[in-house]
Amino acid sequence: MKQPSSAFTVWRARWETIANNRKALPILLVLGLLLSFAIPQFNLVNPYIQLIIMYVGINIILTTSLNLINGYMGEFSVGHAGFMAVGAYASAVLTTQVLPSELNPWLFPLVVLAGGIAAGLVGLVVAIPSFRTRGDYLAIVTLAFNMIVKSIIENIEAIGGPRGIPGVEKLTTLPWTFFWTVLAVWVIRNFIYSNHGRGVISIREDEIASDLMSVNTRQAKLLAFTISSFFAGIAGALFAHLLQFISPRVFDIIKSTDILIMVYLGGIGSITGSVLGATIYTVLLEVLRPLGMWRMVLMPLVLVLLMLFRPRGIMGLREFRWLIPLQDLLGSKRWRQKKEASDATPAN
């Protein structure tokens, strides 16, 4: 009885030391970047696994950005795939119809950015109903938005209508996926640990009280929706240039449901949770592939069981220390130390 528990303590202590050593973070990032170049260069893992890694990255972007609305702001948006569609189509139109194809690899970052901006602008529009409606009614608005986007695309012949755009160039590479994923996670984390992000979180806690504590709730909602949809658009652009074929059906409500599941699996209000949720879900789906159709029966069961035993998801409202800015982590402690120091020296 004693042996395992002491081993556990040892491991726990080791883990604490690692977790407290933030210097490892930049090293890991550089390592990750190098690996993202090395893997395709030297074929360190087979192309199938490379593909899955890229899907994991895209799903992390989608999950983290949706978590901003559903987890941090406490709304229930069910139309994230709609924003993804805007980004995917905007970027795919650029690479297939507008830009000369020999320039595509060079302009790809700008193309992805354009996809993000297009989706962000649309997000601005969707934010406006959120001034008036909340909760279930806002959920309907986002749902309707998803359907409307799909329906509009189906009705524009210039972008392929219901048939979609085939033959999108495969421009999404491992290094680019790594870059955009890190950027998305970093920016959303920055936003959350800022004045504006705290405003967004206070809306989740109590919108009326937050308004009465001087939080400009409209501004906070606009920001949250725009940022969230911007990154959904980025993910959509990467997705389009990985899948190499997009059609309205790809971005229907089922895709949105997938993203929702990843968010709640990982846990609301947690970036760590979103990274974990997206990774676990994507990898698990692939690992269970040999089960054939039973895989799709098993996955929902896993989700239901998780909700029953851990209703807040894996990391609900908790965050891994490395992701919290030092100022937030230590601010109060530093203040107390300073105060003790000044209390110790008698004032003259």
Binding site: N195, R198, I201, N216
Partner: peptide, 10 residues
């Protein structure tokens, strides 16, 4: 602390 920090929004 966050409760008080939020009230600094404006």
């Amino acid at each position: 602390l966050d409760n008080v920090r939020i009230a600094h929004y404006s």
